[in-house]
Amino acid sequence: MIAVIVLILLLLLVFFIWLDLHLGRKNVQRHDIKTPSSCSGKAALLTTGTQFFDTLFEEIEKATHHVHVQFYIYHEDSIGQEMSSLLKKKAKEGVNVRLLVDYMGSFFLKKKAIKELKKAGVQFAYSFTPGFPYFFYKLNRRNHRKITIIDGSRGFMGGFNVGDEYLGRDPRLGYWRDYHLLLSGPVIHTFQQQFIMDWEAASGEKFNGSEYFPELEKGPVKITTLFSAKAIYSFWLQHINQAQTSITIGSPYFIPDRPLQNALLQAIKRGVEVTLLVPMKSDHLLVKEASYFYFKDLLNAGCKIEEYYEGFFHAKVFLVDDKICDIGTTNFDQRSFFTNSEVNCIFEDRHLIEEAKKAIKEDLDRSETLTMTVWERMSYWKKTKILFAKVFSPFL
Rank of each mutant, 00 (worst) to 15 (best):
M197E: 15
D178N: 07
D178I: 02
Q193G: 13
Y166A: 02
W176S: 09
V162W: 01
L226Y: 06
Q194K: 13
Y233E: 11
P186D: 05
I149K: 11
G219Q: 03
S210T: 15
F195E: 05
F235V: 04
Y179M: 13
Q192G: 11
Q193T: 13
R154L: 06
G185R: 01
G163A: 11
M197Q: 14
K222C: 00
V221Y: 02
E215T: 14
T224W: 04
L173D: 03
V221F: 04
S228C: 10
G159Y: 02
M157K: 00
I149Y: 12
D151C: 08
N208F: 14
F156W: 12
I196K: 06
Q238W: 09
S210M: 08
Q194V: 04
K218Q: 12
T190D: 13
Q238I: 09
F156E: 05
I149W: 08
G209R: 13
T225F: 05
Q193L: 14
W236L: 14
A202P: 00
T225P: 04
G155M: 06
E215Q: 15
E205G: 08
R177F: 02
S184C: 06
N161W: 02
H189A: 11
Q194S: 15
M157V: 08
S203T: 15
Q193A: 10
R169K: 11
D151F: 05
S210I: 12
A201C: 11
D164G: 08
F213L: 14
T190P: 10
T148S: 10
I196W: 02
K222R: 09
G185W: 01
G163C: 08
D164I: 03
P214M: 11
E200C: 15
D198F: 05
P220V: 02
Q194Y: 09
D151R: 09
I149Q: 10
L173V: 03
K230N: 10
G158E: 00
